[in-house]
């Protein structure tokens, strides 16, 4: 850019998306305003709840995975009752019934909610947009290997691919296999290898 601040390429303005609110947007606004007007909640409480939801990320899930990699007894409890094992680590799962599915030597797990967008938010934060998209939801149950390939995850032919569809009250998290070359690592170091996508099951943790 020149000193005068001028530059020559075009900026086509992107249109604002400020059409009329949708049915559900209008309903949300109406209910929220009524609740505030009647003194049931305050605007500040609504704002703080949204902030808390937005602040959730995959760090809690990564801690759980790192502990499971480090402590076989914890892993056994986690696979038996995911929510109870997370409570041991001080993680409040709210009303969530967590089922942890473990990748095996030749077994790969991946999660989806074909009906909507159920997701273990308490552990790994808000779902990415692609998780909620019809393309992922409809295709990963039908051609999981092709979808995984589009994420750069090629599952060998002699492995089993198992898709978990969260259709009702359970929520799922994938427990990946601990990468080679991490012997002697601390839980904090191990947690650094565990990403959101590993816990959804669309990729694998990268070996150091």
């Amino acid at each position: 850019m020149s000193d005068t601040g001028q530059h020559s390429h075009d900026h086509t303005p992107r249109p604002d998306q400020d059409g009329p609110p949708s049915y559900y947007q209008a309903m949300e606004t109406a209910v929220r305003e009524l609740l505030i007007e009647r003194g049931v909640v305050t605007a500040e409480e609504v704002r703080a709840a949204v902030e808390a939801m937005d602040a959730r990320g995959p760090a809690q899930g990564a801690r759980v995975v790192a502990r499971a990699w480090s402590d076989p007894a914890f892993k056994a409890r986690l696979l038996k009752d995911g929510s109870a094992a997370c409570a041991e680590l001080g993680i409040d799962m709210g009303p969530t019934h967590l089922v942890v599915v473990e990748n095996g030597e030749k077994l790969h797990n991946v999660i989806v909610c074909t009906l909507c967008s159920c997701y273990p938010r308490f552990l790994i934060g808000l779902p990415p947009d692609w998780y909620k998209a019809r393309a992922y939801r409809s295709r990963v149950v039908r051609e999981p290997r092709a979808v995984l390939g589009e994420f750069g995850t090629e599952i060998p032919d002699d492995w089993e691919v198992r898709v978990h569809d969260s259709t009702a009250d359970m929520r799922y998290m994938v427990l990946p296999r601990r990468p080679e070359g991490t012997e002697g690592w601390s839980e904090a170091q191990l947690a650094g290898l565990v990403t959101r996508d590993c816990m959804i099951g669309v990729t694998l943790p990268k070996a150091p």
């Binding site: 149950v141 051609e143 999981p144 290997r145 092709a146 032919d157 002699d158 492995w159 089993e160 691919v161 198992r162 898709v163 978990h164 569809d165 969260s166 259709t167 009702a168 009250d169 359970m170």
Partner: peptide, 12 residues
């Protein structure tokens, strides 16, 4: 298109 062992688990 995939392995015979591939599966889906669903809550019903």
């Amino acid at each position: 298109q995939g392995r015979a062992k591939d599966g889906v688990e669903v809550e019903i």
